[in-house]
Design a protein around this nucleic acid. Structure first.
Lengths: 153, 153
DNA sequence: AAAGATTGATTTTTCAATCTTC
DNA sequence: GAAGATTGAAAAATCAATCTTT
């Protein structure tokens, strides 16, 4: 089975399953998959704006605000005003945030290695190329949707 | 970039983006991606039990109940008691449900064709094989998590 | 007008617990 | 006890609208 229908279905199911596994494993360590990814990104980037986070992960603005709220509620990040742009805020890790990231990061890394590790170098290159091609096709469709339908042009 | 970290990240981002695009396109037609997938599955299977739906999509039981609730609220499906097993219920499409599926199905099919169509036959076979390998690795990890940690055995 | 962030309402998803029936 | 379905509480994601600053 290699038709588009099957691939789409298998792609989605596999992603969801991986996501759930990640989440379960990492929640045991104190921070969910989504939270750990965010903590790691902020830790790596330094004080980060919400818009940059949304861009990087491909999330809607609301998703990011919600995520930061959760992390802030638990004392893992802090919001600070951006000195150069009064519209913006910078999100940065607290000590507790750094500790949480340090605790979950190895679990995340090991699980990713265990899941993607079995792929051969060739397969990894294939997957990388295929994902890039899919991303291009998705982009084209996103742009197409932004335009009015043919009948109206 | 073909390391596990990058692949995992790209895989997730691409899935999310595709999912959002699908959802947006199909919501315009009256039923979201998740709902259409469910309607199509039920339409194809005939009166279906919730547990079978959960199995097929890899969802948690709660997810399925919630989804059916939403579809039932909008009059797209109906629950009927299973005559052979009084624990179970059968979910089946109403006329409105069949109509909704018929309206969104072509949109879904076209979009999937547009996104996965650009892949060559070779690439599709590669992707299919890679996904199967990932699924196997994920399964192994799910089973590993079900066992007590090494120190306890 | 556009960019950055937030809020309100909703959907989709998860885990954990419960209830009925097998 | 296990299987099928549901419920409660919550996280994670969406869109659309709003508010401030650029």
């Amino acid at each position: 089975m290699t038709d588009a229908e099957y691939l789409s279905s298998a792609f989605g199911r596999t992603f969801l399953r991986l996501h759930r596994l990640m989440d379960r494993r990492m929640a045991d360590q104190g921070a969910s998959f989504a939270r750990t990814k965010l903590l790691l990104y902020i830790g790596h980037q330094g004080p980060t704006r919400a818009a940059d986070i949304a861009d990087f992960f491909g999330h809607a603005p609301r998703t990011v605000t919600e995520a930061i709220d959760g992390l802030e509620r638990d004392g893992l990040v802090r919001r600070e005003p951006d000195k150069l742009d009064r519209r913006a805020k910078r999100v940065l890790l607290t000590d507790a945030g750094r500790a949480a990231a340090a605790a979950t990061e190895p679990v995340r890394a090991r699980l990713i290695a265990q899941v993607f590790g079995p792929l051969s170098e060739t397969e990894r290159e294939q997957l990388s190329a295929i994902i890039a091609k899919l991303a291009t096709a998705i982009e084209a469709q996103e742009d197409a949707a932004a335009l009015p339908p043919l009948a109206c042009r």
